[in-house]
Computed example of a mutant assay.
Amino acid sequence: MPAHPEHFRTEDDRRIRLIDDYPVYRELLARNDAPPGSSWGVFGDDDQLGTLNFLVLADLADAARTVRAGRAYSLNLRSDAITSSLAPTREPFVHNIFQRTPFHRDEWLDRFYLQYATQIDGLRHIGHPDYGFYNGADGTDFQPGTERLGIHHFTALPIAGRAVVADIDGYLQSIGGHLDHDAGQPVELETLCATLEHQGSTIKPGDIVLVRFGWLGHYRDDSSADWRKNLVVKQFHTGMRQDRDLLEWLWDHRVAMVAADNFAFECWPAGPDSPFFAEADRSGVADDPHAGIMHRELIALLGMPIGELWDLDRLAADCAADGRYECLVTVSPLPVVGGVGSPANAIALR
């Protein structure tokens, strides 16, 4: 498959592989020619897109037919929405405006961390301590302006397709439950599946899955200022429990990418029962705050991009109003050559 598969496709003219041509996740786990549980080489040895290749399993014209109500939603937070930073290594940018004449303005940004708020994690973002980066890429080559696994490949694709909103918060509230965001509650795969069943939602090959935990609503409306400040120190966030069954579910459904309204899609930090602790973690050689996280397997092994801090509240409310949880989504990362991640610039059309 070429680095940029034909994305403007129709039902009658698809240059794609059949869904059954791809191995199932259990076959990936049994690999001895690549890291177990990896998709390395499945999309080609020089692949730059990972599971975004699955977008070609869907008909873009069919995805466009999900736009019925004629409403559009930005899924991006304002630049001042997250304070203080949720990651200790990221700082708010400094916005500078200057003028050449009284009737002219220009600007620049200092200290611009591309993964500060609403973002998409690219394939350079996380490597696996035991196996390295996606498709065996050499991380020492990840320099500004270099090609391998740069975020600019996502922009050139481009990313557009059918998305399904899994409103976990809405489902739990409908049955008298809730998520404990103050404690950083892990969410089970069974809860995600129950949410989709409750909504009557079906995941199709090539879909983008948008998971709403209600975390952003809690951050903005219900939490104390002290709780928000302590997030950086304590680093605890509601999200999906680290679970190999979840990886199997995502891969075998041929999900193109996932995004959520929380910090990392998965709960943070990884639970002590996570199956994703690397050998370096178990031996105590590495003192890594990423120990046990699912990012390593999602991004580095499967090649699945992750969207974080997506603002899904208004979109989910609109979905609940008419009982239809599908939409057309476009994602336009900044075309930074060699970029690690980017603001998502995501829009949902219904």
Rank of each mutant, 00 (worst) to 15 (best):
Glu6Leu: 11
His7Tyr: 13
Phe8Val: 06
Thr10Gly: 11
Asp12His: 11
Arg17Ile: 08
Asp20Ala: 06
Pro23Asn: 13
Arg26Glu: 15
Ala34Trp: 11
Ser38Asp: 09
Ser39Ile: 03
Gly41Met: 05
Leu49Asp: 01
Ala63Val: 08
Arg65Val: 05
Thr66Ser: 14
Arg68Lys: 13
Asp80Ala: 04
Ser84Gln: 10
Ser84Glu: 10
Ala87Pro: 14
Pro92Lys: 01
Asn96Arg: 15
Ile97Val: 13
Phe98Cys: 12
Asp106Met: 07
Arg111Tyr: 13
Leu114Ile: 03
Thr118Ala: 00
Arg124Leu: 09
His125Arg: 08
Gly132Glu: 01
Gly136Ile: 13
Ala137Phe: 00
Ala137Asp: 07
Thr155Tyr: 07
Arg162Lys: 08
Ala163Trp: 04
Val164Thr: 11
Ala166His: 01
Tyr171Gly: 00
Leu172His: 02
Leu179Ser: 05
Leu179Trp: 03
His181Glu: 06
Glu188Asn: 12
Thr191Val: 15
Gln199Phe: 12
Leu210His: 08
Leu210Glu: 07
Asp222Ile: 07
Trp227Leu: 00
Lys229Val: 15
Thr238Gln: 01
Leu247Val: 13
Leu247Gln: 08
His253Cys: 04
Arg254Asn: 03
Val255Ile: 11
Val258Arg: 02
Pro272Lys: 09
Asp273Gly: 07
Ser274Pro: 06
Pro275Gln: 12
Phe276Leu: 06
Phe276Cys: 02
Ser283Cys: 04
Gly284Leu: 00
Asp288Cys: 02
Ile299Lys: 00
Leu302Trp: 10
Ile306Met: 02
Ile306Pro: 02
Gly307Arg: 00
Gly307Thr: 05
Glu308Lys: 03
Glu308Phe: 07
Asp311Asn: 03
Arg314Gln: 15
Ala321Leu: 14
Leu328Lys: 05
Val331Asp: 08
Leu334Phe: 14
